[in-house]
Write a protein that binds this DNA or RNA. Structure first.
Lengths: 138, 138
DNA sequence: TTAATCCTTACAGTTAACTCTAAGTCAAGC
DNA sequence: GCTTGACTTAGAGTTAACTGTAAGGATTAA
């Protein structure tokens, strides 16, 4: 079975070896095998697990909570419920993040239009002095 | 014109007075008026400006860059171009954040299904031993 | 008049997630 | 044999954005 060195994995996941060792130290990678001399041998499944970790991280989940999940994985079927609940909770989190982002986008787009108009007019006053025009304020 | 105290504004924006004073110190609130004794009087327009700041923050923009924007606002029409460009850039950022979130959501939803199936079966092995069933692996 | 709330400066502490250095070892490839 | 890249422990440094304390003073509402 093909294995990968720490720097190969780091490159693939856009991380550094430092970060991977840090994750290891924090207990996020309990399954990675070693050579007799102690060098980490990452399998495809380890990389897949790291991608899940990166996914959880991108939802804003702190490393200590991700560690709980990793521990549950090691504990076997008795923790299936916790793990299911955790992902359902993450799903809700991501849903609300999406809604927040949508609202943010609306404000940003509004500002883009605002500055486009101002730029075309050569002055921001176009928004303050709309009374002069035909259409009136707003 | 109605004005608001620092703690009223903090409550409305889910911040603390400490944070607002910190923003002020970092140059994010150059326009807030004061009483003769130095107490901040926030107008509706100041609160609106703070909401824009929170919006920019939620896109991941660091405070120092937000300060640039605030400075440009003070500089008047000569900076309309920078401000327009900035919001267009923010728009692109938010778009890519949305795409990232979508990918994240797909992984999370996949995991939800995975654990739902495992939970119903009582064991995670259902995924490893799929060969036994009719449908085969995957 | 008393409690609450505001202000200032100055600075220390917190948290998360790295990021790196030191010092010393080990092992594989050219 | 030399370079490269891996390893260890231990610990220091970094960054961002707060978060809070101290010390002293002013204002305002009940």
């Amino acid at each position: 079975m093909k294995t990968y060195s720490i720097s190969e994995v780091a490159k693939e996941l856009n991380l550094t070896p430092y970060t991977l060792r840090y994750y290891d130290k924090e207990g996020l990678m309990p399954l990675v095998e070693r050579t007799s001399s102690g060098i980490r041998l990452f399998k495809e499944s380890d990389i897949a697990a790291l991608k899940v970790i990166e996914c959880l991280k991108s939802t804003g989940m702190p490393i200590k909570e991700i560690k709980n999940f990793i521990d549950w994985c090691s504990d076997g079927d008795s923790t299936l419920n916790q793990r299911y609940d955790m992902f359902m909770e993450r799903k809700a989190t991501v849903e609300s993040q999406m809604e927040e982002l949508k609202k943010t986008m609306e404000v940003i787009e509004h500002k883009c239009l605002y500055y486009k108009t101002a730029l075309d007019a050569g002055t921001e006053d176009i928004h303050k002095k709309a009374k002069i025009g035909i259409s009136g304020p707003n």
